[in-house]
Nucleic acid binder design. Structure first.
Length: 431
RNA sequence: UCCGCAGUAGCUCAAUGGUAGAGCAUCCGGCUGUUAACCGGAGGGUUGGGGGUUCGAGCCCCUCCUGCGGAGCCA
């Protein structure tokens, strides 16, 4: 007899194994009991037949409750009637801990209840599938960059000042000084690009905006590549290659999870095919006006406008060359029209919104100094950032991608809060 | 911060201003192939808090609290 994970069982037909896990669900039919056991690697229908087991084992099978931890021992059997085609003919059953009435049933629950029980909700089949997709995505991100010789540079979480000066920051005490939780690693990445050429950071990001929409979290994860000598066109190519790689990878390796989530994979397959549409900001405004949206040149896009633009092709779309006035201070102006910034947003289809924001960065010391003044930013706090233009200035570009937004899109979720293990939302810091 | 919706059993939801109910979960009983199994029975309620209108309020009015969705802002 050997210990086995449920994932291995199709290769162990006829063998006697012990599986350790939790009771997902139980169904009964008189002298037959079907115990569905999950162990993290899969779900296993275990069949207990009364005349074939001891009285003790039968009694245990009758009293075991949902989410009790247990060991089941038995022979692995092929059976078309079992979900997954494999089941366990139970010979022995040991309850490790009998679980009292479990709050989360297999029926519907509301979001408030589920979020208060997030530590238990993670065990549910859908949440399990989402976390596996997230895991594949984050591993794929690191592999994508590592294979292309990027160096991972971790940016600090505690920072002395606003990175962009716009969003609200979480403030904390740093031995008597004010410190803030980072809202982007980018500014710290640019110096590292001068050291290593191609770099990326990947970590948590904090925004104290009082946003209450399905597209916002107070704490979320962002991956930010930054590349020396890369110009705007190269950035668009990189973003497109990156996203199409990740979608292909998840489609390839998370088939079962996407099926459990009832995600329509054919819609994601569109995003594996390059190129993605690239729409100039001015053209985007014109198209939206043609569809009757009340937008004018100089406006930023709302959720409905983004959805409309991305749904034209069903692929992610890149909106390029935004007016400099509505973008961040560090973005390089377009040489052909300095009122425009070499900025790009990538919008996911099906209403999932902006997943990437990026730009070519300002290369000139004088221009950056001017922009810092125009935005009323404290110059002293940015001296080190200006230094990058003082000591060997170079063109460079980068973008940031929000992990939870991508997970939400890939999994076809309704809310960003399901895409992170422990979501931090407005007025919600538990568990 | 602003706008809208909601709060009834552990959970999801019903209930014309007139005796608070159902499904699931729990407990008891039945069933040798169940697939969120099914069938029968039982227990389970300060209807979010406070105030008001009324013979009578889960329902109408005021207020506060909590949650949800959206705007703004962004990934």
């Amino acid at each position: 007899m050997r210990d086995a994970e449920i994932r291995e069982l199709p290769g162990l037909i006829g063998e006697q194994v012990r599986v350790s896990g939790w009771l997902y669900n139980a169904r009964s039919s008189g002298k037959l009991r079907f115990l569905v056991v999950r162990d993290g690697s899969g779900y296993l229908q275990s069949v207990v037949v009364k005349p074939q087991v001891s009285e003790r084992v039968w009694a245990e099978a009758e009293r075991v409750t949902q989410e009790s931890s247990l060991h089941v021992v038995g022979k692995v059997k092929e059976d078309k009637r079992a979900p997954g085609g494999v089941e366990l003919q139970v010979e022995d059953l040991t309850i490790v801990q009998l679980c009292p009435e479990y709050p989360i049933t297999l029926k519907e629950h509301g979001p408030d209840f589920l979020l208060n029980n997030r530590h238990l909700w993670l065990r549910s089949m859908r949440q399990h599938a989402v976390m596996r997709v997230r895991n594949e995505l984050t591993y794929g991100i690191r592999e994508f960059f590592h294979e292309r010789n990027y160096v991972n540079i971790d940016s600090p979480i505690l920072t002395p000042a606003a990175c962009e000066g716009t969003s609200t920051l979480f403030e904390t005490d740093y031995f008597g000084e004010k410190a803030y939780l980072t809202q982007s690693g980018q500014l710290y990445l640019e110096p590292a690009a001068a050291a290593h050429g191609k770099v990326y950071c990947f970590g948590p990001t904090f925004r104290a905006e009082k946003s209450k929409t399905r597209r916002h979290l107070m704490e979320f994860w962002m991956v930010e590549p930054e590349v020396a000598w890369m110009r705007f066109d190269g950035l668009l190519d990189l973003a497109e290659e990156f996203v199409s790689y990740l979608v292909s990878r998840v489609l390839d390796r998370c088939k079962e999870d996407l099926e459990r989530l009832e995600r329509d994979a054919s819609k994601l397959e569109l995003a594996t095919r390059r190129p993605y549409p690239r729409i100039d900001y001015g053209e985007a405004i014109a198209r939206l006006q043609g569809k009757g949206f009340d937008v004018k040149f100089g406006d930023d896009f709302g959720g409905d406008e983004e959805t409309s633009l991305a749904d034209e092709s069903g692929k992610p779309v890149m909106i390029t060359r935004y007016p400099a006035a509505i973008k961040a201070f560090y973005m390089e102006p377009d040489a052909a029209d300095p009122t425009r910034a070499l900025a790009m947003d990538m919008i996911a289809p099906e209403g999932y919104g902006e997943i990437i924001g990026g730009s070519e960065r300002i290369g000139s010391y004088e221009l950056l100094e001017k922009r810092i003044a125009e935005h009323d930013l404290p110059r002293d706090a940015f001296q080190w950032y200006l230094d990058i233009r003082k000591y060997g200035a170079f063109p460079h570009s980068g973008f940031g991608m929000g992990i939870e937004r991508v997970v939400t899109w890939l999994c076809g979720l309704q809310h960003l809060r399901e895409a992170i293990p422990y979501p931090r939302l407005l007025n919600r810091l538990y568990p």
